[in-house]
């Protein structure tokens, strides 16, 4: 589970009904959140803040970020920067 101790915490969407979703914060902690602000599907990770999902976590972008980190660490020659 990707844990971010912060104002907004990622949680997995378990079920959806109108503007509400049941989300899993990991380790079985389920909570109802309002999904008016996002277009979330079951199985998506959403960022939850004060009872509202404020964004869908983009798994592809997350992997891109890791790829970018690895490129910076491995490819860029340190002496020439």
């Amino acid at each position: 589970m990707l844990i971010v101790m912060c104002l907004a915490i990622p949680a997995k969407v378990i079920s959806l009904k109108e503007d509400k979703a049941q989300v899993d914060f990991g380790e079985g902690v389920l909570r109802e959140v309002n999904v008016t602000l996002v277009n979330a599907k079951v199985g998506d990770y959403v960022l939850v803040h004060a009872g509202y999902a404020i964004q869908v976590v983009d798994a592809k972008e997350a992997l891109e970020t890791i790829k970018l980190w690895n490129e910076i660490l491995q490819v860029e020659p340190e002496a020439n920067i």
């Binding site: 602000l37 996002v38 960022l47 404020i54 964004q55 976590v57 972008e61 997350a62 891109e64 970020t65």
Partner: peptide, 15 residues
């Protein structure tokens, strides 16, 4: 933008 996994250029337009 280092936080592209949740931050886009336009942000959350609905919000």
């Amino acid at each position: 933008n280092e936080y592209a996994r949740v931050v886009s250029w336009e942000g959350n337009m609905k919000a």
